Simulated assay, not measured.
Amino acid sequence: MASHRRPTQTGRSPGVRSAVLSAAVATAAAALSAAPATARPGDTAEAPAAPGTVKAQLDRLYEQAERATERFNAADERAGTLKEQVERAADRVARGQEKVNRMRSALGMVAAAQYRSGAVDPALQLLLSSDADGYLDRATTLDRVTGRQAGQLRALLAAQRSLRQEREEAARTLAELEDSRRAVERHKHEVEGKLAAARRLLNSLPEADRAEYTRSSRAEDRPAGPLRSVLPDLSGIGSGRGAAAAMAVRSAVGSPYAWGATGPGAFDCSGLMQWAYGRAGVGLPRTSQAQRNAGRHVSLAEARPGDLVIYRDDASHVGMYVGNGQVVHAPYPGARVRYDPADMMPISSVTRP
């Protein structure tokens, strides 16, 4: 994600900025290292005993892992956004501190000059006060200094108030970043636990059964051969962004699934959609839940190449419609990006970005 952080200004004090950034980074690193490496209460790495076939148990584990993956993706995206906000806030605090320092220095020079002449104006002694802001609100002695000096004092106090607000905002953002990083670690552990349980279960199957599972979708068995004898022809669908995304997603067929991945070598389900539309010059949100609302909803009967097909009520899986009743999607760990029937699972919505 591109940073919108303002460039460092020439002459800025490196000591102030370094101290602020170092404190922010150190606090965030401490929060990350202290993050719990356990799943949420009530979750277990193993799928609970369930009636039905081993395939049904595997499907359930992969669905749970996929939901946790999308929670991980959302928390990770939020952490990235907050990290940028923390850096920008630290930059603003550093600039604010430098401004206050310059203003205090200028007024201090005036006070020093008056001291040398034997008469330091009481108002300028506010520079040494721990409650200069409150004093000015009550003081009538401000009339004793020139209008220019009074303006400088009030400007200094306004700058100090602004600096306090910036520091408070930076502290709140940093605390939110720490919470998001802990969520990232929690969801990461949850995904890894579900996938480890699925691997153990899959490895317990005879080799022939393992091969059969890899040839079937999670919701419905389908023939081991090609999904359709004729793949969708995208040559005549135009040059719109949906067509460009559909061409890109087809080029990813055969790539491995990797949870949390956005390409170009591996993908999870929503990462594949984001990458394909990125190739078409369109920015999509990171998660399947957000992608569900990233455009206009249409019916499956109206679907055209490039539309996003969102699955399950919680929108925890997504594929891209490519025509001929098919989607391309990243199914689950161990499977590669492939074609499947568009109605392979319950559809939550069809979204046209």
Rank of each mutant, 00 (worst) to 15 (best):
A2L: 15
H4K: 13
Q9C: 07
Q9K: 12
Q9G: 04
S13Y: 09
P14A: 01
R17M: 05
L21V: 11
A24Q: 15
A29W: 01
L32C: 02
A37Y: 01
T38L: 02
A39I: 07
A39T: 09
P41Q: 00
A45T: 09
E46C: 04
A49F: 13
G52V: 08
A56F: 09
L58V: 11
R60A: 13
Y62R: 10
Y62V: 08
E63S: 13
R71A: 01
A75W: 01
D76I: 00
A89P: 07
A89G: 14
V93I: 06
K99C: 03
V100F: 07
N101G: 14
L107Y: 11
G108Y: 10
A111Q: 14
A113P: 09
Q114Y: 12
Y115W: 09
L126P: 05
L127E: 06
L127T: 03
L128Q: 09
S129I: 00
S130N: 03
T141H: 12
L142H: 06
A150R: 15
A150Q: 15
G151C: 03
Q152I: 01
A158T: 08
A159H: 02
R161D: 03
L163M: 04
E166H: 12
E166I: 02
R167Q: 15
A171Q: 14
A171M: 04
R172T: 11
R172Y: 06
T173G: 06
A175F: 07
E176P: 12
D179I: 01
S180L: 03
E190A: 01
V191L: 04
G193C: 02
G193Y: 02
A196D: 12
A196C: 02
R199A: 10
R199C: 04
R200Y: 01
R200G: 04
L202F: 13
S204M: 03
E212M: 08
Y213Q: 11
T214I: 12
T214M: 15
R215E: 14
E220Y: 14
G225H: 04
P226E: 00
L227M: 14
S229Q: 14
P232A: 00
G240I: 12
A245P: 14
A245V: 04
A246L: 03
M247H: 11
V253N: 06
G254I: 03
S255I: 01
S255T: 04
A258Y: 09
D268N: 06
Q274N: 07
A276L: 07
A276P: 14
G281D: 06
V282P: 15
G283V: 10
Q289E: 08
Q289H: 11
Q289N: 07
A290H: 13
R292S: 11
R292Y: 10
G295Y: 04
G295H: 03
V298N: 03
S299F: 05
R304H: 05
G306E: 05
Y311P: 14
R312F: 15
D314S: 08
D314T: 08
D314G: 05
H317G: 11
M320T: 02
Y321H: 12
N324H: 12
G325Q: 02
H329Q: 13
H329M: 10
P333A: 02
R336Y: 13
V337Y: 13
R338E: 15
M345Y: 11
I347R: 10
R352Y: 07
R352L: 05
